[in-house]
């Protein structure tokens, strides 16, 4: 449900950058969203379509790249991907340690926009 608020912010960022770049129209918006985030792609596009009516971003396509979760092993420093939602114990593939720190998976940012 917070997709609405997030999409409002997204549109502001897009319009600001498009304006600074003297764009006449925004064709697409590429965003990177971490796997830990529960933002639903369909809803973001739907809200964007609604909110952007009458702006130069009307009709722009939202391309969402999901960033997988990776962890850094606290013991040996290896960085490895793992599913944060698994019911299994996550262990470092190199040293089997169970102490780790999340490195990626919380992203929520605009990478680039395609404009005309």
């Amino acid at each position: 449900m917070h997709e609405l608020a997030v999409t409002e912010s997204l549109l502001q960022v897009v319009l600001r950058h498009a304006g600074e770049g003297r764009a006449g129209k925004v064709v697409s918006v590429s965003v990177r969203i971490g796997e830990l985030s529960d933002l639903v792609s369909d809803w973001m596009q739907r809200y964007f379509d609604y909110l952007s009516r009458g702006t130069i971003a009307e009709g722009a396509r939202i391309r969402i790249e999901r960033i997988p979760a990776t962890f850094r092993c606290d013991a040996c420093g290896d960085v490895f991907p793992a599913d944060p939602r698994t019911r299994e114990t996550i262990r470092c593939p190199l040293c089997a340690s169970e102490a780790m720190t999340l490195v990626t998976g919380r992203e929520c940012f605009v990478q680039q926009i395609e404009v005309m």
Binding site: V6, S9, L10, Q12, V13, V14, H17, A18, G21, A23, G24, K25, V27, V31, C108, F109, V110, Q111, Q112, I113, E114, V115, M116
Partner: peptide, 18 residues
Amino acid sequence: MAEVRLIEVREEILAENR
């Protein structure tokens, strides 16, 4: 027709809230 070009944004979506 105008050419499509890329603008690098690299900004947090919720930058304003932050």
